[in-house]
Amino acid sequence: MSTPRFLTLPPGVRSRQVDTTVGAFAVLEALPISGIAERWPALLVPGLTGSKEDFIAILQTLAQSGRRVIAVDMRGQFETDGPEDAGAYTCAALGNDIDVLAQTIGGGEPLHLVGHSFGGLVTREAVIDGLTKFASYTLMSSGPAAIVGVRERAARTMLAELPEFGLDHIWHDRMEPEALATGVPDDIIAFLRKRMFANSPTGMITMTGEVLSAPDRCDELTQVEVPTLVLYGEHDDGWPPRTQSEMADRLNAECVVVPGAAHSPAVEAPETTAAALTRFWNAAETRQPV
């Protein structure tokens, strides 16, 4: 579970809705405070129990480099509605949503794509299918296949309990005690509770099953010509850092390890994370025809 550092929107960041041919998506949109958005835009996709707010701490900094930056709630997450059809929450279906969103936001221009944790498994579907031309692709705290270790055990527990006991049980018995034990402020706990109960239970169950069963698709990713970055915290408790480093080698991707961060570098080390993304995006743009 990611814990946003603050919930007040910084200057240049607004909450809005993006309408597409596959539905409406709640987003946070960041634009430069001064100057214009002259560089290619970016789309940031959160993890399983996360939301667009997980990127609040980096949005303003990213936009100040001269680009429009969008963080999204995926279908069934927080402020984006989702159906009761479990088929809408597979990696393939959510990846198609990302394709449509990217084409809508980009308006025909290439777009930088970032997927955090489970969002990495979703976004790679959009990269592999080749329907959208991406300026670059970043896997943030994500892995080559199904989640392992501590977070795998937590996901299996959630998958076993959620259908029978519902979101209320998951929050009161697991997420709230964890937040209290780590000293999360009351206002942030209130937000996390609101976010948890706004999620689609069907979506949560299906997406949890997806993160536990995702196949390794690195070989397919290597066939796509897109500048790729693997970025993760040195203390990541999701996919092990070594696994992510090996994935970067397999993808012939750049690799950035964020000092002091764990599974959510955008929350735990926002300035370092934003600087790494901006440098990578700018370099990717210099290698492609405008």
Rank of each mutant, 00 (worst) to 15 (best):
R5E: 13
R5Y: 08
R5A: 14
P10K: 12
P11F: 09
R14Q: 06
R14L: 00
S15H: 14
D19H: 15
T20V: 06
T21G: 12
G23E: 08
A26D: 11
I33P: 00
S34L: 08
R39M: 01
W40C: 02
P41V: 04
L44C: 05
V45M: 03
V45K: 01
G47K: 03
G47P: 08
E53M: 10
I56W: 09
A57S: 15
Q60S: 15
Q60T: 10
T61P: 00
T61L: 06
G66W: 11
G66C: 10
R67V: 03
R68Q: 07
R68D: 00
V69I: 10
V69R: 08
V69K: 06
I70K: 01
A71I: 05
D73G: 01
G76Q: 13
G76L: 07
Q77C: 10
G87A: 15
C91G: 07
A92L: 08
A92Q: 14
A93S: 15
G95H: 03
N96G: 05
D97Y: 13
D97L: 04
A102D: 06
Q103A: 14
T104V: 11
T104H: 11
G106L: 04
E109P: 00
L111D: 09
V114D: 03
V122T: 10
I128R: 13
D129H: 15
D129C: 14
T132Q: 04
K133L: 06
F134K: 01
A135V: 02
Y137Q: 01
M140Q: 13
G143F: 03
P144W: 01
A146P: 01
A146Q: 08
V148E: 15
G149R: 00
A154H: 05
L159Q: 10
L162C: 05
L167C: 09
H169Y: 15
D173Q: 12
M175Y: 07
L180C: 09
A181N: 11
D186W: 04
I188P: 05
F191E: 09
L192P: 02
S200T: 09
P201Q: 05
I205D: 13
I205L: 15
I205N: 14
V211S: 02
V211R: 02
L212S: 04
L212E: 05
S213I: 00
S213A: 14
P215H: 11
D216A: 01
D216L: 00
R217H: 14
C218M: 14
E220A: 12
Q223N: 10
V224M: 09
V226Y: 06
V226S: 03
V226Q: 03
P227G: 02
P227F: 01
L229D: 13
L231S: 07
Y232C: 06
H235G: 00
H235A: 04
P240A: 06
P241I: 07
T243S: 02
T243H: 01
A248Q: 13
C255N: 15
G260S: 13
P265E: 04
T272Q: 15
A276Q: 12
R279L: 08
R279T: 11
F280M: 08
N282H: 06
N282K: 08
E285Y: 02
E285K: 03
T286E: 12
P289R: 14
P289W: 07
P289Y: 05
